[in-house]
Design a protein around this nucleic acid. Structure first.
Length: 277
DNA sequence: ACGAGAACCTGTTTGC
DNA sequence: TGCAAACAGGTTCTCG
């Protein structure tokens, strides 16, 4: 569910709730998610002020005032739900972590499938942390250019669609935006990754940058992974051109193809066989 | 050493 | 209507 734009939407939504707030109490309601919580997880957060809420690719990073960094990932089904001050709504089945702030609001981490995670590192170890160390540049960063992308793809014998999902190639792109970017760039998802270079890599880098930027602007695609007290976000799903549109007409002007669905590395890919080469 | 597929886990949708 | 199978926005392990 959450790809880079959704995680960025969550970050922006949580920023005013968490930044500069003290975590007065933290509830950890089960021993593990995809990986175990570190020893003393909740206690190590309590009493500390959140200095910043950052994002790297699909990871959320909470900087605490003692140089602790909380690493969070939403997996497929993770959500962050804001509980307003004074709410006494009961916690739900998959509410795994609750961060209570000194302003009375709290943030609830809910993840039915538990493919997400929360763990700890510190500022100086962050860049060498196993989860973050090999992450590629993400498309919102200045160095994300055609030549850079071509360099990351060089020598890869896998289809370009699979390569785009590899977080050491592009940070933050997931299954929806991989299909969307390839359609915008007119590149077949089955094309050999290493053959995407030069002008073609330039087009793909631009398409990735554009689709990610537009999706962030629209507040992401998901209506589920993030719920702000004052309403719902996630309008980008109405702008999908190929994802989840099997058998519908290709939206490229003048193209009379139909959107096809294929399976690559066990994931659905949507594309037009006419205008994507 | 690389790449494809399975596995992780639960909920929802689809098809018989 | 009911039940089972297929499928879901991610990552990581195993196997060939």
């Amino acid at each position: 569910m959450p790809e880079l734009p959704e995680v960025e939407t969550v970050r922006r939504g949580l920023q005013p709730i968490l930044e500069q707030r003290v975590l007065t109490r933290v509830e950890q309601r089960r021993p593990d998610l995809r990986i175990p919580f570190p020893d003393g997880f909740a206690a190590r957060l309590e009493g500390h002020r959140v200095e910043a809420l950052r994002r790297r690719a699909k990871y959320l990073l909470l900087d605490l005032d003692d140089d602790t960094v909380v690493i969070a990932h939403l997996g497929m089904s993770g959500r962050m739900v804001v509980r307003p001050k004074g709410s006494n709504a009961p916690l739900e089945t998959h509410d795994h972590v609750v961060l209570h702030t000194d302003q009375g609001e709290s943030v609830v981490y809910n993840d039915a499938r538990r493919f997400g995670l929360m763990t700890l590192t510190d500022r100086k170890s962050e860049s060498s942390h196993p989860l973050l160390r090999h992450l590629a540049l993400d498309p919102t960063e200045p160095g994300f250019t055609g030549p850079h992308l071509a360099d990351r793809l060089a020598g890869k014998r896998t289809p370009i669609k699979a390569a785009l999902l590899d977080q050491t190639v592009v940070g933050g792109v997931g299954n929806i935006y991989a299909s969307e970017a390839l359609h915008r760039a007119g590149i077949s998802p089955r094309r050999l990754a290493a053959s995407v270079k030069g002008q073609r890599a330039e087009r793909l880098a631009a398409a990735i940058r554009d689709v990610i930027a537009e999706a962030i602007e629209a507040g992401g695609s998901s209506l589920r992974d993030y719920v702000q007290a004052d309403g719902e976000l996630g309008y980008f799903q109405h702008r999908w051109r190929v994802y989840d549109r099997e058998d519908q007409p290709c939206p490229t002007p003048g193209c009379h193809g139909l959107v096809k669905r294929i399976v690559q590395s066990n994931r659905s890919t949507f594309y037009c066989g006419f205008c994507q080469r």
